[in-house]
Amino acid sequence: MRMYIQTFLYKYIVFLYRIQEKKFDFLYGYRYNNYHSRIEGQQKSQNGVFMIVRKYMKNFLKYKYLLKELVVKNIKLKYRRSYLGVLWTLIEPLLQMLVLTLVFGTFFGKDDPQYPVYILTGRLLFGFYSSATKAGLKAVSGNASMIKKVYVPKYIYVLSSVLSNFVTFLISLIVLVGVAAVLHVKPTIYLLEAVVPLLILFVFTIGCGLILATLNVFFRDIEYIWSVFTLLLMYASAIFYQPTKIINSGNSWIFDINPLFMCIANFRNAVLYGQPMQMSYFVTSSAFAFVSVVIGVILFYKNQDKFILYV
């Protein structure tokens, strides 16, 4: 009896398994009836979603070392020939914070002893977004000589420019730790949540980088439009003023469509205010990040074979 049940179960499982396979044919890109024809079928067609993803993963792993080399190169060359070198990643935001505190402190931060931390959090995240998108924008058009001569997966250029900016951004967070300590900002358990807005911003920036890099190949105007746009974005992201000022004036929509502001706000909640993050900001900015990456990847892949003809 037990034997019978076992065989039955076995057959049933095999049956289910076959149905699964049929259903997901489009994913695997091949169809097989028994184990032996499987290998053959696999070679015949490589159009399934999984097969394509696997192919790209394999290619990515092959060029993982190149990605690292490019990130290192971008960071190394940025500070080569300067006496203070990488220290500038710390000094620059610190000086900017001082200037902004001096200029806006009397307007916006009168009774807030921790106003410099407020500015620094905004400035650092905005600085990352603006410099990373600018670098991503030029990642393809600026590497024209390479793209024309050697085969390298082209998204590596975009990824490496965003990544190298992210690394320098992470280094510059040391300044934030220092300033926060000096101004007695007390770390709370919510500090752990600071990782979340940073990751969302990182993903969002990659999406934007892919979109901008693609557009800039075909229209060199994007570069100029984007620098004006980032200026606008800076004023719309509550870097040196309190967001309540805008919200109270009935223009809260500015923040509702600004994922950068949402990331900054949640980052401040974690670092400065010791509050849990605002869920609506978390959800909306994640959605923005996801959509930008999807659009970016599709746009990039649809056009990347044409790049070489335009750069």
Partner: peptide
Amino acid sequence: AGFSPEYTGRENIYLYGAV
């Protein structure tokens, strides 16, 4: 073609090799 002009020969060996 894949050389970075600011890089030294040594660094370029690794960069171009990675390319």
